[in-house]
Nucleic acid binder design. Structure first.
Lengths: 176, 176
DNA sequence: TACTACGTTTAGTAATTACTAAACATTCTA
DNA sequence: TAGAATGTTTAGTAATTACTAAACGTAGTA
């Protein structure tokens, strides 16, 4: 039986909603992105309301975080005071801005707190059993090294974006 | 003023809890891992209870998902019917098993649903405006390509683990 | 067999998060 | 200036998730 195009869109939207949730974002966010991504032209807030069934309020805030992550762009038409939104279609561009965004996040604050733990130990200002301190020192150091490696990898991905999509394969072959 | 070793541990545990939450896991999971990671010897369930303040029930379930992700290992001592848990200290090993684990996850189910959308379009079984179908086809295809690229990257990281930590830097320089 | 020492499951609660509805603010138009 | 058309904020609700407390299952020990 033939699938109606509206059903197809709905399936797709459902899929992106799940993916969104998987990464810890609201499912509404995935739905909003999906609707924009499948639209050939930018959509106004009210059109998004119509197509997602969410309220203006929710969309207003979620579209803002999408914009902050570089996954959608806000624009406006001359002589029209509505805002229009469209999906970023170059995902590498998005990844880059997501990774940059991450710099200022809770995540990095936490990572930095590990670094501080390390500094405290190394400054010799920790009192307690010496062997235990040494043990902890070594473990925390290893974790710190790992974070640094991840950070380097993130930077590698950022560079990757400049080179285009096919080059992931190159990394693979370089590593084999 | 000198920092007591117990305070240091607590700070560290707090940091990992936040990181855990950031990635969408319960903060308790981060705490459990932290406690195990800073312990020179495997801990029993009750010892984890003691050090985290969580209940046996919570730890029982969370330690299981940690084990599934390869972040902790369960072991037992002869003539002792307690289970003991210790942290995996090679993070590359963990990453590898997390990425493998992901294969069976909700995430991949959702990704597969995108692939199915694509198949429906390509089989010509979608009815509706032809230009719109073409447009959607092209967009969904692009997303699919992106997912494939991510998948390749994941595989690259899996290989990386074999090569040791310093090699992330190599990728970076290869790409520059 | 009964008792003890554990780990697991379950049913309920607390905390968090996503979302709605409606008030509000702002800017354009008449 | 009043009114209309928008986007934003806010206060409350619904849904989800993390966690607790306690019942349960199981296996070892007396």
């Amino acid at each position: 039986m033939p699938t109606k195009i509206t059903d197809l869109k709905q399936d797709f939207t459902g899929g992106l909603s799940q993916i969104s949730r998987f990464w810890g974002f609201p499912k509404g966010m995935g739905a909003i992105f999906a609707v924009l991504y499948l639209s050939p032209s930018p959509l106004s807030l009210d059109e998004i309301v119509e197509q997602t069934g969410l309220t203006k309020g929710a969309i207003s805030t979620e579209v803002r975080t999408l914009a902050r992550m570089g996954l959608v762009h806000r624009s406006s038409k001359l002589g029209d005071r509505k805002d229009y939104y469209e999906a970023e279609t170059d995902f590498y561009t998005s990844i880059r801005s997501i990774l940059k965004e991450r710099q200022n996040s809770e995540f990095d604050r936490a990572v930095r707190s590990v670094a501080e733990t390390l500094e405290k130990i190394e400054s010799g200002s920790v009192s307690g059993d010496e062997a235990e301190i040494q043990f902890i020192h070594q473990r925390v150091q290893a974790l710190q090294d790992f974070f640094n490696a991840i950070d380097s990898l993130a930077k590698a991905v950022i560079k990757l974006e400049r080179l285009g999509i096919g080059n992931v394969k190159n990394i693979l072959s370089i590593l084999k």
